[in-house]
Design a protein around this nucleic acid. Structure first.
Length: 573
DNA sequence: GCCGTTTTCGGCCCGACTGTTTTCAGTCG
């Protein structure tokens, strides 16, 4: 079983316990363990073999035993017993907005409702309104929720939510009396996908802001409208929430709304240990007097910490690191001085070699690698050896025009074929300036096979970079099933760089793997994989992913000068 | 169910909003 599959089992257990009405902390414990397994960054199997399961945060004796049982047998007796009281289907009902465990439990107990379809029918027949705590409005709300569920496609990729939120912020900043407006929540933490867009505004007259927010032309439904908090759903299915606070409380409010929830638990604990209480309104002393914070810097300073960048706020050790003055010096977009992965009209790109070079220069880059696809990727017009040699002539011509202004490297994004063989022989790879290898096809192969394919590329001394290692596509296509520990180990041995692909559909390596990679001393590259100059804008998403993985500029090859990059390449095969 | 430089037992963040009530329960973030 994969970490994700184990995590899904524990998430389900948590959901069912909640519906059953167990003490809420038991539910939270299972969810915490699921979260930890997802964020482990290495196959839990190795931790299991080392007998160190309880070293995983949130995993104690009971959950460790359950992991052991699942890894040995693939089953969990505890879950099977639990399902006698609470069928697993009920967990699905929790995905309906405004429907929680108590009501799901009530509907099952009183009416035997197990599926969304059955619930919908009961609501339409007016059977829910007479249950305790229910009424006509609640019944209608459930039907609304079921309908919105069918419209929503789950989480929104960061690449869609970010520009949408920027547009929204621009409108809100124009509202009279608005002092500041910022995105918060998972969007500000730059998670690869976001659920809702959280917006925080500092204003003296909250009413005007929330009115403008709910009356915006894009709004399809108003889900809530209060003095402090409002939420809406837009016609595109996206949802946003707005909090409005007084300017002098903006710092505590922004810190609170940015989360993550687990990070906030840590900061609150720290506040409590200092005799303070941290809320979205203010920091309270024991005598209930307030410390107002207009900025986040003041919030963190009050609890004895330096400001923590939002990308780190996931409760992955950042509070401890901040306490010890050991926060990483995170990479920034301005540190990027090279693009080492792009396409031209020679394969499936939109512009010529020279046009891409000019675009790179405009961004201030000093190095550009032209890396068109190789011939196995027929759909992208991949290059044969002959066409690759033809392309070299055009590269040479472009170099003459560019002079010293840009180091133009001739490379390839070479297919790792389904049988693990590579598209070009070693002498061609040696002749190229830079070699990227990647998987595009056969990504549903079994783990053993996929891993072997990757290893055959990494262990070739001419391969410099592995692009988008798992080949996932957000929000829905999972990556190849890979033994990442084996891949990291080989990359570390060979000094092969792993790419963080900045395309918001990819963001691959993800943050967790990026962090693991740098811990093992593996060089990273952040590339946009541009098929058009506009795609070079994606670099911000790639850098954000790196920052979430605690990556510093020194870990990333393309923060280097042309001379340093050449020297790295010539030291390799 | 997890966790511990005050605790191996007793905590575990808590406030806004909605719809149901007539002071509160459920849901959400």
């Amino acid at each position: 079983m994969t970490n994700k599959e184990l995590a899904d089992v524990f998430t389900l257990v948590g959901d069912l316990l909640e519906i059953k009405g167990e003490v809420v902390y038991k539910t939270l414990a299972y969810r915490k363990a699921a979260e930890s397994l997802t964020n482990l960054g290495r196959d839990v199997k190795y931790v299991w073999e080392e007998g160190k399961l309880t070293d995983i945060p949130g995993v104690g004796k009971a959950i460790a035993e359950k992991i052991d049982e699942l890894l040995r047998t693939g089953k969990l007796e505890y879950l099977e017993k639990l399902q006698k009281d609470v069928p697993a289907e009920l967990a699905e009902l929790l995905s309906i907005p405004d429907l929680g465990p108590k009501k799901v439990g009530l509907f099952y107990k009183e009416l035997g409702l197990k599926s969304i379809a059955a619930l919908k029918q009961a609501a339409e027949e007016g059977k829910l309104r007479d249950l305790p705590g229910m009424g006509p409005k609640s019944e209608a709300k459930i039907l609304d929720g079921i309908e919105s569920l069918s419209r929503r496609s789950g989480r929104t990729p960061l690449g869609d939510a970010w520009p949408f939120a920027q547009g929204l912020l621009a409108k809100l900043r124009k509202v009279q009396g608005v002092v500041a407006a910022e995105a918060a929540g998972s969007l500000r933490r730059m998670r690869p996908t976001v659920g809702d867009v959280d917006i925080l505004v500092a204003a003296k007259e909250p009413d005007k802001v929330s009115k403008a927010f709910v009356e915006d032309e894009g709004v399809a439904r108003v889900l809530g409208h209060g003095a402090i908090k409002s939420s809406v759903e837009y016609h595109n299915g996206m949802r946003a929430q707005l909090w409005v606070h007084a300017p002098e409380r903006f710092g505590t409010a922004l810190q609170y709304a940015t989360g993550s929830k687990d990070h906030n638990v840590r900061t609150r604990e720290l506040a409590i240990s200092m005799g303070l209480s941290l809320s979205d309104q203010a920091i309270f002393r024991t005598d209930d007097s307030e410390i107002l914070c207009a900025t986040e810097e003041e919030v963190y300073k009050t609890i004895g910490l330096p400001w923590i960048p939002p990308e780190l706020r996931e409760d992955r050790g950042e509070v401890q690191a901040a306490k010890e003055g050991k926060l990483p010096n995170l990479i920034e977009t301005k540190n990027i001085r090279a693009e080492l992965h792009c396409h031209t009209t020679w394969s499936d790109g939109k512009l010529s070699i020279l046009e891409m070079a000019e675009a790179a220069k405009l961004r201030g880059y000093k190095t550009l690698a032209i890396t068109d696809h190789s011939y196995s990727l027929g759909i992208a017009n991949g290059l044969s050896v002959e066409r690759l040699q033809e392309q070299r002539k055009e590269i040479e011509a472009a170099r003459k025009k560019l002079g010293d202004s840009l180091l133009l490297l001739h490379g390839t994004e070479m297919e790792i074929r389904a049988d693990g063989s590579l598209d070009f022989p070693d002498e061609i790879l040696a002749w190229l300036d830079i070699v990227i290898a990647s998987l595009h096809t056969g990504i549903r192969q079994p783990r053993e096979k996929s891993t072997q394919r990757m290893l055959s590329a990494i262990n070739n001394p001419h391969v410099d970079i592995i692009a988008h290692p798992t080949n996932r596509l957000l929000p829905d296509r999972e990556g190849a099933d890979l033994d990442m520990d084996a891949i990291f180990s080989a990359a570390a041995d060979m000094g092969t760089a792993l790419e963080i692909n900045a395309n918001p559909k990819r963001l691959d390596l993800d943050d967790v793997y990026a962090r693991r990679a740098i811990e093992l001393g593996i060089p990273l590259v952040i590339n946009t994989d541009a098929h058009h100059p506009d795609h070079m804008d994606f670099i911000d998403f790639g850098v954000a992913t790196a920052r979430r993985g605690w990556v510093e500029a020194k870990n990333v090859i393309n923060t280097n000068t042309p001379k340093q990059i050449n020297s790295w390449l010539s030291g390799r095969g």
